[in-house]
Design a protein around this nucleic acid. Structure first.
Lengths: 164, 164
DNA sequence: TATGTTAGTCCATATTCAGGACTTACATCG
DNA sequence: CGATGTAAGTCCTGAATATGGACTAACATA
């Protein structure tokens, strides 16, 4: 299967991955959340080739995650901004960052520190249940596929069982 | 820059992306959380080429996210299981899934439904602040880079400002 | 006029991927 | 005994994608 066919799968992770699933896109989005908006700035920070950057920005635009805005008339200049759909990726990037901080910096201070203005503390993101607000743990989650989902049938052994 | 050099960057998202940032890896992990463990089963569900699957499994193993366990002596057969580091990716996959459910299924029933055994309800994941427990919102977060982080200097315009 | 800036495009080479055939090491069926 | 089946891969070839650097357009500034 090719990457763009992933968009047609009966699985939200597969569809999301078709758009976000490459190393530059995720890092690029992380930069968006830090306020980066311009081509040259992305290129300098990511150190990705200009062709690849162009294609990633285009894909994110096609999928409605970024919009190109003109910020100068003459000469015509554009920048990229997050749409609401893009802003809604904030939790994804935040949890990815939290995981990276945990496993790639361990006890050291991570390279980017974030403060929650609401409570005034430096924080990490964690994930919780929308219904009861408790932190989400793998062992408390039971997944089932919708009956008509023949593309991703349930696993025989049953999800989340048998130790490691 | 090449993908594996991302692992050396002063940015947790970049490092995480170096390992997870491709469409198959994320979908593969999602299947791991559904209980999938065997080569043939991954291959059949993901419909990815066998060579690519082999390389992804190898990478996840090298990074300590999966371990290969022998589940049968004769003939020797192996399966892949999540380590603790791998299980800690559950929030990442969960938020990615929540985003996909929101934007690719809108009001329809998403293809995979998850129940929180703790409270008994079907749920979606949301992300919160580790210090005060409030749901995390982009506008409440202020990010700063560690002073000695010359690789990812702060953005001039300041993070998270100026509307869209 | 010369140089600089921003947002790209173009091109040659290098790397990676898809899809299918093949392999190894056994178990089972007739 | 020989044929077929199964799981977990490897090997191969052609196709697609990425890299890095040069180049371009459309202006602004010195």
């Amino acid at each position: 299967m090719k990457r763009d066919q992933l968009s047609d799968q009966q699985c939200s992770v597969a569809r999301s991955s078709a758009v976000l699933g490459d190393p530059w896109t995720l890092t690029l989005l992380s930069d968006c959340f830090l306020g980066v908006r311009r081509f040259e700035e992305f290129q300098e920070r990511l150190k990705v080739s200009r062709t690849t950057l162009t294609s990633r920005l285009k894909r994110l635009e096609e999928h409605g995650i970024l919009v190109q805005c003109q910020y100068e008339q003459r000469p015509p200049r554009f920048e990229y901004r997050l749409t609401q759909k893009g802003k809604d990726l904030f939790p994804v990037v935040s949890t990815l960052l939290a995981w990276g901080d945990k496993y790639y910096w361990e006890d050291a201070t991570p390279p980017i520190i974030r403060t929650h203005k609401h409570c005034g503390h430096d924080f990490q993101a964690y994930t919780a249940c929308s219904e009861c607000g408790e932190p989400l743990e793998l062992k408390d989650v039971e997944a089932r596929t919708r009956p008509d989902n023949d593309r991703y049938p349930p696993v025989e052994r049953g999800p989340f069982k048998r130790g490691s």
